[in-house]
Design a binder for these strands. Sequence first.
DNA 1: GCTAGCATGTAAACGGTTACATGATTAG
DNA 2: CTAATCATGTAACCGTTTACATGCTAGC
Lengths: 178, 178
Amino acid sequence: MLTLAILGFLAERPMHAYELKKHIAGLAGHVRRVSDGALYPAVSRLEDSGWLTRREEPGQSVAPRQMITLTEAGREELLRRLRNPGPQDITDRSKFVVVLSFLSHLPDPQAQIAVLRRRWDFLSEPASFFYDGSRPMRASELTDPFRRGILTVARATKIAEKAWLEEILQELEVKVAT
Amino acid sequence: MLTLAILGFLAERPMHAYELKKHIAGLAGHVRRVSDGALYPAVSRLEDSGWLTRREEPGQSVAPRQMITLTEAGREELLRRLRNPGPQDITDRSKFVVVLSFLSHLPDPQAQIAVLRRRWDFLSEPASFFYDGSRPMRASELTDPFRRGILTVARATKIAEKAWLEEILQELEVKVAT
DNA sequence: GCTAGCATGTAAACGGTTACATGATTAG
DNA sequence: CTAATCATGTAACCGTTTACATGCTAGC
């Protein structure tokens, strides 16, 4: 998730790590704070992979900082990841949000459609949640009010997301057809 | 997350690890598959902490398996974690769902109210998502259709969850008052 | 005979959290 | 002078993923 977010934001423009941190924190909707201990090693890893380069900017009245730039290989890696998200990137909403954030970078609407459809298919599968012994329970059988709440909210979320997906898929299909 | 889920399900009844796995997979709504490499070591860790015990059940016509039972210390640990969830357990929906799943185990409605209110407070904070340079953007300024989608769905989810929270909080407050 | 499901584990690699460490600038 | 924000990093620890490894039973 961190890797994709770093590649994605750098594709828009070069930044230094501190800026990157704020962008990523915003993306996560402070759902997940980005710790320095995760970010800086991640940037180093991506540099080792040849996906980005760092240029020291001697501090003119500010603390010295490093401008990080995406390489061509980095841009290709981003597109590869966007075109071909892993299963978790589709099923885990917080990961899918990252994919979605950068999906515009894919030049091909058909590739965008493919990703969105995978999410739609996943949301269309029946989601079993709780078990009575080994038998999955239906929502109507649940007496626990908190578990009912989980299902209530999950259902509302699913409906909202599917509605949006159907809307944008239709727009994209019109675009492809023309 | 795994630890809390294991403690929570075992509080309902003893199980063997394979059953636990299915319960946890259901809980996660196959958002996150539970790998054996995570589950079995987690169970061992909890055993080392004295929160559960394992009893070998020689297989009568089935493969030999181990019945896992929560200890008194394990039950206390569960209650401690439910009463006092970490910040991530409140802000990260997939983690909050785990807390919610077992919140009924807390005997005190006031403690339940406290947890739910923390979530409500978190959902009430303004969530900034994307930046234009260093300025956070308003939803109306976003032109990227996928990013607009993220905000659209997030807003719907938030409304649904807050509505449910307000409903159940009111019920619980009535309960406390009587 | 084979596949699916039941059932339990280990080991290496990876990545994230937490805590530690440093230092500059700006606003109150 | 002090707190907040800018800015970058390291190290120990922990838990998860992935891949490997084994073996039984039931139904087709």
